[in-house]
Every structure is written in structure tokens, then in C-alpha cells.
Design a binder for these strands. Structure first.
Lengths: 195, 195
DNA sequence: GTCTATAATTAGATAGAC
DNA sequence: GTCTATCTAATTATAGAC
């Protein structure tokens, strides 16, 4: 089992993927190392060969989820409208197939130590910058300063992350669907059906 | 100590207030019953004379915070601009003096049992309806249907709750301040400095 | 209604065999 | 690098005195 030099790297990756999914869906405190390791196909004892603590796993899992999604988006190059359509969907709210750590762990990460908050903050920065680039691509004529473009990107980020996080907290599927629709129709959206 | 019939009610209220503040700031799992009871001026053993479980305390604490804030708003009758100004402030982000359970517990509540999610959902409904009434007061000319007014209220609610929750998660005070400003300047705000 | 004492369970982290 | 076994600490919840 330990013949290949890629073995440890592969195990580490499996742990990160399992942790990202479990933490996002259930919250950091409600998931034990045991549960993470079993989902990764190992037992408790092997954990500390890969990570120093559960807390370190948390921050690395957030970064890993962000990187995975960034790679996907870099390949697909979706438009702003496409991004909103899939991000603000009931499927995403229900956690399939991807869970955005920014929305799923928003108040969870806020209550952790600096290491975790830094990972969350840097992920948010990347998300906001991606939106800014995508929006400037949709509207190539640049009449606004960078400052205003960055404000607009942050407003869109809030509408996306906040909308998804609220829809997830809501206990009522009909209301959640209405909320997601309202967010997609907001001025921060493609802006095509409002004046 | 047990002479007054209001004694139990007062203790219960103190527990609810302590729980609301502690849960909001640190998250449900990171606060023990011991900590809550000490903040309320009692010891662990007295807890179960007031609540059946920690989980029940959670949902009741959310409702108690919402009711307390609703009473305050009913007395003050602030305008939409005033509400945005105080809700989307750095003071509120830092938890002083009031913590909105919708923002502070957004992903925390989403991961709990139905009882807690129901309390959160009903609080959100009340918040959204309050915004709708306040917005219709600011713009007395009603050209829109109820459905559109409700959509606009939900968009504003997302910008407020989402903006505050993100600002709280961010590890960078400068970025958090910029984000709150962007939210206040958004079309969901008073709408006075955008077109 | 509040207290002290305790039961019962669980989790994060470590030790040492292989 | 992964396993089993264990340590230590914390937690929810209960029992019974006052």
C-alpha cells in the first residue's frame, strides 16, 4: 500500500475532499475526525500523519474547495448569467453537486480562529475578483473606475453568497425558491429584466 | 430567593438573553450549558427546570432575540435609511450592542434540526415583512404588485443579512468596512445615490 | 428553583505495532 | 502510512439534597 510515492498525496486529497463536503453540510463541530477519515477510507489514527490538527484541516479544506471550483470555472468560462443561474439554484442549495464554502460555512468560519478566517477571507477575495472580471467581460465598455467596479462585484457577491446561505437556512422550500428567484432578478444579476 | 412568582420567569429570561448572545458570538456547539448558566448567574443543574434540552434553548433564544428587536423597532419606527445605517455598520458586525441572529447564526441554524430552522425561518419572514412595510412607507405611491414588493423586500433582506454575515466572517477590517459601504450603496438601499 | 455530585457518552490527540 | 488501543478532557443530562 505504501509503494507509490503518490500514495500519501492521494490520501491527503481524499481527506480534504471528505472534510470539505462534511464540514459544509454539517458544520465543523458536528463532524468528527473519525467520520472524516472513514469517508476517506481510513481510520482515526492515520489522520495526524497528514494534518497537525482538526483546525488546520478546516482551513486547508476551505482552500481546497475553492481551488477545485476555480479550476472548473477557469475551464468553463461561464457568463455572469450562467454563474448566477447555477449558483442561485435549488440544486446548489441542497448541496448537489458542489457546496460553496463561502455560503455553507459563512457563520461557522466567522467563529473560528484566525487561520480559518484567513482562508475564508482569501477565498472571498478570489470570488469577488472573479465576479469583477466576469462583469467587466459582460460590459466591455469601461466607464466606471476600478473602485465602482469593485463595489458592484461585492454587491453581486453578497447577493449570491447571502442568497444561497439564507435559502439553505430556510425551512420552507417554496420560500427558498422564491428567494433565489428574487436574487437572480436583482439589479446585481444580469440586469436584463429590471430598470 | 423563591418568594416572588416572577422569579422563575426572570431566571428564564436571563438564560435566554445569555444564550442568545453567547450562541450568536461563538456558535451553538462552542457554547456549553455551563457557560450559559454562569452568564445568567446560575449553575448547570438549574437549567433543566427551564428547558427540556439545549436544542430547545437554541430555538427559543432565536425567537427571544427577534422579539426583543421587534419591540425596539416598533417603538423607534426607523426609516429604511436609518435601518440600513445601523444594521450595516461595523459596530453591528462586531456584535455591539445587538447581534442579529439571522446573520450571526445563518449557517449555524441551517445545520440544525427542524425546530431550530423553523425558528430561524419565521424570524426571517418577520424581518422581510418589516422591510416590505418600511419600504412601502418610504415610497407611498404603489405602482407595483405585492409580489414585486415582496421580491424587493427579500433582495434588501439578502443584502442586509448577507452583507453583515460576510463582513463578520472577513478577517480584514478594511475589506469588511468597504463591503458594508457597498451594501449600503446598493440599489436595495435607500436608492438615492444610484441610477 | 437552585444547588452539588455524578452518570454516560463523545471527541481530539497520542503511543506504539506493523 | 496506516492500524488498534488508550489517554485526557469536555459535554449533555440526571439524581437527590435543601
Amino acid at each position: 500500500m505504501s509503494w507509490h510515492p503518490t500514495h500519501k498525496q492521494s490520501s491527503r486529497q481524499r481527506i480534504l475532499e471528505a472534510a470539505g463536503e462534511l464540514f459544509s453540510k454539517q458544520g465543523f463541530d458536528q463532524v468528527g475526525i473519525n467520520e472524516v477519515m472513514q469517508a476517506a477510507g481510513m481510520t482515526r489514527g492515520a489522520f495526524y500523519s497528514h494534518f497537525e490538527s482538526k483546525s488546520q484541516l478546516y482551513s486547508e479544506a476551505i482552500r481546497a474547495m475553492a481551488q477545485r471550483q476555480a479550476r472548473y470555472l477557469a475551464a468553463e468560462q461561464p457568463s455572469m448569467e450562467q454563474m448566477l443561474q447555477s449558483y442561485l439554484s435549488m440544486e446548489h442549495r441542497n448541496g448537489e453537486p458542489f457546496q460553496c464554502p463561502l455560503a455553507f460555512l459563512i457563520s461557522d468560519a466567522a467563529q473560528r480562529e484566525e487561520q480559518v478566517r484567513t482562508a475564508w477571507t482569501e477565498t472571498f477575495r478570489g470570488f469577488s475578483q472573479l465576479i469583477e472580471r466576469t462583469q467587466s467581460h459582460d460590459i466591455p465598455i469601461e466607464t466606471a473606475t476600478d473602485n465602482i467596479a469593485s463595489q458592484q462585484a461585492m454587491q453581486t457577491a453578497v447577493m449570491m453568497i447571502g442568497g444561497l446561505a439564507i435559502a439553505r437556512a430556510l425551512n420552507d422550500d417554496v420560500l427558498a425558491q422564491a428567494l433565489l428567484t428574487a436574487c437572480r432578478n436583482s439589479p446585481q444579476g444580469a440586469g436584463k429584466d429590471r430598470g
